[in-house]
Write a protein that binds this DNA or RNA. Structure first.
Length: 654
DNA sequence: TCTTATGCCCTTTTT
DNA sequence: GGGCATAAGA
């Protein structure tokens, strides 16, 4: 086990002077939470009440009061959020908090797991499966089980199996229970589904692979079953701060409980009305249970909203009021009056795109900042028309939904080269690489993998003789591939490895396969650039898998230009814009088609999502819906009708 | 007959 | 981008 050196943290005089401003810069509610001496605390913070601010000042206050930053753990929903908080905390105290551990559960979990991989039976260089890899592996397991049974076509698709399994693990329930409770339609196939899941778990271990849920589950195992490990980390982290507590699941709540078991200085911040990740096992009842779990907990409430005008806030409060399962807390805006949110009926999605784009154009012409505008929607595909219209008008935008940078085919392809070197048992990546060769499809790739994985020789050592299994058509390409892999084995630097894989074999495939090969090649060159900051492939690969959504490329592309944001509401969480357009507010789209009856649990979650969307806006809010589609007349979202009459202002488009 | 390649649908939300 | 049906190939 690695021991960390604790350096004494000394605060300089200038920093102390800055800190006297705390009571001027925080309201009494925030100040009380920030300066709480310790013990378990739950901060119930409504939308726009300065949650991030409170956490940031808390970090600064702790350090100011002599806590070494390396004894603080800050768990956030995205890595970006924790970096931003750390940066601001550092500037508050005019010191340095870089030794603080901050990031997502998965990020911190990966760091801890690396230290103790052997204790859990992993070999060195395990690969982390991202969302798409997980599905791939489930698909191969599904096919294998299907082949052994006649009625296999009844098996659900890999994506359904992935969700089901993940949900079961995140809620600590048996898969069979989840099937009967949440997927009753699948009940007749339950035995077969359980077989697929069992095979998936077995393969993952054999292939030295770790999926996202493993990271959490392994953390729980390490902390619960290994007294020395729990002792070490729970003593080390004198203060544990958790943001977005309403979106933690069973495993995460358990991890938090274990990590703060020694000092019991836990600060959980959350808002039950913004719990929008229950499909992933998140349970806002963790907030309720907090008081049961820590009976001595102090509760703080933040109810002053600094973000939105009273008109926007009234509409949001009115929208969420229909939810029965919630803590009541009406937020009060301190801002001056503004315009009521606009309700905009439009003929169809095309008109909707035209409206949004022309409004944005007007705003720019009047000198408005692009960075103050966002278009939010329920599902990624709803953004397409708006994207087209913005492109036509030459308005720069950044899309934050759909495929992640690291989930794109060409990125995954090139990383597969590095992955088989780092973890030669990575069947997923082997198959991916093999299928790129002409004439090799699923079946042949499977044959070659079975040959490679046969002991006693290691897969990488057997590769040179695997060409004989491939069809003649692939011979030339296969030889080049073998040569490329051999070359890669001698390279440590991930950046150099990417270049080698590109030149040695991938570039040819890229131009033969993708019409937009130029763009993709540019991405890969940038990826290689980015990789120069890592000197070992496995750290590079695991970071890439875990921080998938962060898109570090965006920062590198030097695209510092102003742009508007198109985002799913889920990804917009925690953010704010001066002007917000919420589009596609039609029943069937939002709430989505699968949503249950009014009053159901599903519907309440969708309504919370709606509430999150409305509360992203500071000054201007547009709620757009279409009244026709290719299918005929469609209805506006039932959530719009929940908002009291008079709070919205209907706009007529001529 | 087993495989690979291709064209045409549709698209929840994600660490 | 993924799933699925179908055409083409070996």
């Amino acid at each position: 086990m690695v021991l960390y050196t604790m350096k004494k943290y000394v605060l300089n005089k200038a920093a102390r002077a800055r800190l006297t401003r705390f009571d001027e810069e925080l309201n009494p509610q925030q100040l009380e939470a920030v300066t709480c001496p310790g013990g378990p605390m739950l901060v119930l913070a409504g939308a726009g009440t300065g949650k991030t601010r409170t956490l940031t000042y808390r970090v600064a206050w702790l350090v100011e009061n002599g806590v070494n930053p390396s004894n603080i753990l800050l768990l956030t929903f995205t890595n970006k959020a924790s970096k931003e908080m750390m940066r601001r905390a550092a500037s508050l105290i005019g010191g340095d908090v870089t030794s603080l551990w901050g990031g997502t559960f998965h990020h911190i979990g990966n760091l801890i797991l690396k230290q103790h991989a052997h204790a859990l039976g992993y070999k060195d260089g395990f690969s982390i499966l991202d969302r798409t890899d997980t599905k791939d592996l489930f698909d191969t397991c599904r096919t294998a089980i299907a082949a052994a049974h006649k009625d296999a076509q009844l098996l659900p698709k890999a994506s359904v199996l992935t969700d089901l399994h993940s949900y079961a693990r995140n809620t600590s329930k048996a898969a069979a229970t989840v099937i009967s409770e949440r997927f009753p339609a699948l009940a007749p196939n339950a035995p077969l589904i359980l077989d697929v899941i069992a095979l998936y778990e077995k393969k993952k271990m054999e292939l030295n692979l770790v999926d996202f849920d493993d990271i959490l589950q392994n953390m729980v195992i390490l902390l619960k079953d290994h007294d020395d490990i729990r002792d070490y980390y729970s003593r080390r982290f004198q203060h544990v701060l958790v943001d977005e507590y309403q979106d933690t699941n069973m495993l995460q709540a358990e991890i938090v409980a274990q990590l703060c078991s020694y000092h019991r200085n836990i600060m959980a911040v959350g808002d039950d009305a913004q719990s929008i990740f229950s499909f992933r096992g998140a349970n806002f009842e963790n907030i309720l249970n907090f008081q049961r779990q820590y009976p001595e907990a102090r509760i703080f409430k933040l109810t002053t909203n600094y973000r939105s005008t009273p008109q926007i806030l009234d509409a949001a409060n009115s929208a969420i009021a229909a939810n029965l399962r919630q803590f009541r807390k009406d937020l009060v805006s301190v801002r001056g009056a503004g315009e009521p949110p606009a309700l905009v009926p439009l003929e169809d999605v095309r008109e909707q795109a035209l409206f949004v784009a022309s409004k944005i154009k007007d705003s720019i012409d009047e000198g408005g900042a692009l960075s103050g505008i966002a278009v939010l929607y329920r599902s990624h595909y709803q953004s397409m028309e708006v994207q087209m219209e913005l492109t036509r008008l030459g308005i720069p935008y950044d899309v934050r939904s759909g495929m992640k940078f690291f989930e794109q085919a060409h990125i995954k392809d090139i990383l597969a080269y590095l992955r088989v070197i780092s973890n030669p048992f990575d069947e997923i990546s082997w198959r991916r690489l093999l299928k790129m060769l002409p004439g090799i499809g699923n079946a042949t790739a499977g044959k070659i993998w079975r040959y490679l994985s046969e002991p006693p020789e290691a897969p990488l050592d057997k590769l040179h003789s695997a060409g004989k299994i491939a069809p003649k058509k692939a011979a030339e390409h296969f030889a080049a591939f073998i040569k490329c892999i051999a070359q890669l084995r001698t390279i440590d630097s991930p950046s150099e490895a990417i270049d080698t894989a590109l030149r040695g074999s991938y570039e040819r495939y890229l131009f033969l396969t993708f019409p937009d090969a130029d763009n993709r090649l540019r991405d890969l060159t940038q990826l290689s650039q980015y990789a120069t900051r890592y000197n070992a492939a496995d750290t590079f690969l695991s970071e890439m898998a875990i921080q998938g959504s962060e898109q570090p490329m965006a920062a590198l592309t030097a695209d510092k230009d102003e742009h508007i944001v198109l985002s799913s509401i889920h990804q917009a969480k925690g953010l704010e814009w001066k002007t917000v357009f919420v589009i596609g507010l039609n029943d069937g789209q939002f709430p989505s088609i699968k949503t249950g009856r009014p009053g159901s649990w599903d519907e309440e979650e969708e309504r919370r999502l709606f509430y999150v969307a409305l509360t992203r806006a500071c000054d201007e809010l547009y709620l757009c819906y279409a009244y026709t589609s290719f299918a005929g007349l469609i209805r506006p979202s039932r959530f719009i009708k929940d908002i009291s009459r008079g709070l919205l202002q209907e706009i007529e488009i001529i």
